[in-house]
Simulated assay, not measured.
Amino acid sequence: MIETKRNGEWFQITIPNEWENYTVQDLFRKVWQAPKKQVHALRMEKRVFVNEKEADWTQLLRKKDTLAIRFFQNEALPYEAKFYDITILYEDDHLLVVNKPAGMDTHPNSPEQNDSLANAVAYYLQSKGEFRAFKHIHRLDRDTTGAVLFAKHAFVGALLDNMLEKREIKRTYLALIHGILKNKKGTIHKPIGRDRHHATRRRVSSSGQDAITHYRLVKVDSKRNLSLVQCMLDTGRTHQIRVHLSHIGHPLAGDLIYGGKPLFSRQALHAVKLQLTHPFTQESITCFAPFSDKPEIFPDIDPHQLP
């Protein structure tokens, strides 16, 4: 793990063995693969220091050098702050993972909306005196519960966006579906596009975007003719799990849009686990999201026991 600490507005990194003989520029562009625009801004604004001196971006770094980057200056919150009692699954100076409840959008869908998870995060950070240009890295549907990852500043947000695109952030879901699965595991690789007959629906479409869902049978509920399945995504299309499982004849229970029966007040889908390697410390992070409406929908499953 790479040694780091915060010092006021500055983030400090002790250069490890593997970064010796990189230049500062190499570190930003090759190791972190940061966007050129952000790297240029840091350089022009003199927000990068090495051993307490303004960085020479072409000088080779040495083991135990101290790299300092000014990440934590106050900025305007991107959303109106509105109180909601949210559950924090993980937090440090750069990342925040929140357990989203049902019936809440991940972010506002209009300028006047202020009851989304992003509004609640704005309030939470403001209450701690952290005024940051935070952003969500991925989204969950309004009635899907579970782990949502936020970046607390723009630079780490860019790194996380890149990690998500490269499938280095792993998301695991639990879905309760109609019918008994014949195969205990499988992969659904079908493109997903908009349904021109329904404004909010998606459908499997040859002209849609590539979408890959892996699934595994966890448990069978023979009395209710339901299967509990674990799903992992290689892509993050809108309604992906809902569309894919409906496409193979097993819509989610409670998902009226995609053929499910009204057994519950919402579709039975929960983002149960989020895994990533911290972009700065290289620490392995695994977050488990407890069920907020258990046992109404999900059976007695311990998220920590899932593979």
Rank of each mutant, 00 (worst) to 15 (best):
H304Y: 08
K190C: 00
T106G: 07
T4E: 07
F155M: 09
F291S: 02
N162I: 00
G129T: 05
R196Q: 13
T23N: 01
G208S: 05
T286G: 05
H40W: 15
K100H: 10
D302R: 13
A133Q: 09
T172A: 01
F83K: 15
Q12E: 15
W19L: 10
L274P: 05
R139A: 06
V229S: 04
H138K: 07
H278D: 02
A175R: 06
L77N: 02
N21C: 00
N7E: 15
K64A: 09
I88M: 00
H304M: 04
M1C: 03
L263R: 14
L276K: 07
H136G: 00
I86P: 03
F28V: 08
G8I: 04
V98W: 05
A175G: 10
W10A: 06
L95D: 06
K219C: 01
D115S: 03
N17F: 09
D195M: 01
I2N: 13
L256Y: 04
H136R: 02
F11W: 10
K190H: 13
I69R: 02
L256I: 14
D105Q: 04
E165V: 05
P295V: 03
I88A: 08
N225E: 11
L274I: 08
E296D: 15
T144S: 14
M44C: 11
R70H: 10
L67F: 01
R142W: 06
A102C: 11
E130Y: 11
L160P: 08
L217C: 11
L140I: 09
L269T: 02
G186A: 06
N74A: 11
K46S: 12
H107A: 11
W19D: 09
H138E: 05
D293E: 11
K273G: 05
H189P: 04
D115H: 06
K182Q: 14
H239F: 07
W19H: 06
A151N: 04
E3D: 15
K261N: 10
M104W: 12
I177M: 07
N119P: 08
A158D: 15
D293C: 09
